[in-house]
Structures are given as C-alpha cells and as structure tokens.
Simulated scan of single mutants.
Amino acid sequence: MSLIIYSAIDPKINDGILYHLDLSDPSTYKTSCYEVLNSKWRVDNDNCYLETSTIHLPGFINDALLDIPVNINIKGSGNLESDDFVLLQYSTNNKWITIDSISGNIVPINNTVYSYLVKAISSGLSIKFRLSFSTNAQNEELTLQCSSTKDFCIGSPFISGTIQQYVWSNNPVNLSMFSAKNDTSDIIELYWETNNEYNNKFFSIERSVNGIDFKRVYTTLGKKYSNTKVSYNFIDTLSFKNRVYYRLKQISTDNKSQYFDVVIVTNSNLFKNDYCKVNVDPNPCVGKCLISVDNCSDSLNKVPLQFNLIDALGNITFINFSKDLIDSSTYKFDVENNLSPGIFIISNHKLFQNKL
C-alpha cells in the first residue's frame, strides 16, 4: 500500500462520489463524542472519533487495484498546540491504517480541504474511514465542516496508477453505435463508438458475403481503460454484387470475447436495378409481425419470396416461404415465440433486408 497526499483549497476529486458524510443521517456514521454536531462536527478539550458507515468498493474482489480519493474540510481554533492532532485512517480488515496525522499547531484557522489518494486498494472490498480529533485544553477546538457533499467524502475510485476512473460493469465495453455504409460500390466505411471500456484488449471486424460464413478482415487495439467516448473506424475495399455482412467482435485482456449486432451493407448499384423497400411492423417484433414490400422495380414482380431470420452471429434461425411478390404487398411473419430474445435480421436473399 502506498499513499499520495495533496492539500488544496479546491478538492482534487473526480465527479463521482461513493460516500459523503451527512450529519443529519446517523446511518452514515457513528461518533464517540462531540461538542457540536449539526452542519459541523466540533471537538473541544476531548479525544473523539467519527467513523463512516461501511463503504462497498465497486467491482469483484481482486478484479483491479484502485486509488481512492478522500476529502476532509477542517479548521482549528488558532490556539492549538503540537500535542493536539487530527488523525485520518482507513480499515478494510478491522485493522486501522493511518493516512495522515496533522499536528494541531499547523491546522489552519480557516476551512481548508485536505485531499488524499489512498492507493492500491483491491476492488470489491468493504472499507471504512475514521477521523479523530484530540485537544487537551478548554477552548482548543477542531472542527470538521459538513455543509456540502464534498466536505467529507469518498470519491469514485481510479484505476490504480492512472487518471482513468474505474467503471465497473459485467460488460467490458458499452457500445453506443456500430454502423456501415458504402458511398461507392467497392468502398465500405464502418464506424463504432464506446462510452466506456474496461480491460478491453482489441476489436476485430468480421465479414461475410452470405450472412453465414464470416472471416476476420480487420483488428485494432482497444483503449483498455476509458470512461469517455472513443470512436473507431475501418474502411474496407471490396467488390460485391448484392450485399455484404459485418459483425464486430470484442476481446478482453482475459481473452474472453463477445459479438455485437450484424450490420448489412447493400451495394449502391443494386438500388439502380432490382430493388424493393421493406418495412416490419411492429418493430421490435414480438412473435408476430407484418412485412410490407413496396416500391419494387418491374423486374421483381411475381418473384417467389423466401424470408430468413438471421441472428447476431449470422446464423439462419428461421425460414418461411411465401407467395409471389406483387407490387405493394403485405405478408404475415409468425415465429410463434420460438426464438430467444435478441436482435435479428429479416432477409430475402434476392431483394432486401431489415432489422427487427
């Protein structure tokens, strides 16, 4: 365990707060004694401590090492001596470890925020903090200010040794967007964004020309740790006749992986020839929905339709044959709730596709 100590008027603490002392709420603390206890905790000619309630650090135990910001806002009466003191400690296993000890004679007479960074604490642990005041003469006072949430607070932790705030989730990546488009028939641009990343090793893009067989075509490193928006892109050069399928794979530092939605790009030249507009209603579709097909080119009239459902991994999970296509037609699509909840692509291999 190591410790970095800061002292400043403005708290050096991240925006998130795990805990703040609320003297009006006894469930957030306990105290051995006091002279004043309202918007401040004051000790006069006594030896008292104030202890926080148990604070649960985010994450699983030993998942990561964390640096924990701590603020206290204190002042002295101006007549304190060197044998008076302020003591700040923490405990994770019933053993109290000293963060800082301040002699009374150097405690400022004006409210001053002391900010600390307790380093290399395991995620997932339960932790408590204790502030002790000791004075040994009448009218020698130490005061903890408690009028705002940042006067005595424990901030959201950082990943140890970094300035990245620890964002814990069962999902190592919060993906906000994954899309693809082609402005020309043989150049496809793919974009994706993350809102946060934890232990993210890299991404890979996989491509398929039939929606079933995928092959990796691109790999890029992730940010590993991030709590801000990160944008990625890949430009693929490919000559294809009708449509091409892409899926995004994410791999963590422990080599676990996950797939995200399949996106489909239709050859821009296809819109100039054989093309139909497809709509699914309702969308999302729960068990039963209607597929409307309209604005079809003349060459596609009376073409037999085969509707397929393709899951996020590119597997065909449902096949339904329907009647011939007649311009501006509506078809019932009924999967009778035999599918697991998820995102699927509805497709006809000759005409169109849509997501439901």
Rank of each mutant, 00 (worst) to 15 (best):
P58F: 12
I102K: 00
S268N: 08
I17C: 05
N38V: 02
C33S: 15
I187F: 11
L309C: 01
D67M: 10
I343V: 09
V36S: 08
S322K: 15
E140T: 09
I235M: 10
K150R: 14
C48S: 04
V209M: 04
I13Q: 12
S231E: 15
F307M: 07
S123L: 05
I187P: 02
Y225T: 11
D15G: 06
Q145S: 10
E141C: 01
T54G: 09
S24R: 12
N210Q: 02
D183W: 07
Y198D: 14
C153S: 15
L221D: 09
Q138G: 05
T317N: 02
S156I: 06
I102R: 00
S32T: 13
S147K: 03
I72L: 14
G59F: 12
G211C: 00
T266A: 11
A137F: 07
N71E: 06
L131G: 05
I345Y: 00
V70G: 05
H20L: 13
I154W: 03
N267K: 03
S156M: 12
A64D: 15
I346Y: 03
S204D: 14
N182L: 01
S123M: 11
D63P: 06
F321Q: 15
E51S: 11
I154P: 13
D46S: 15
F271S: 04
I159F: 14
L88W: 06
S115I: 13
F203A: 06
P11C: 08
E140A: 08
D84Y: 03
K215Y: 09
S176M: 14
Q258M: 15
R130G: 04
V230D: 07
F344N: 01
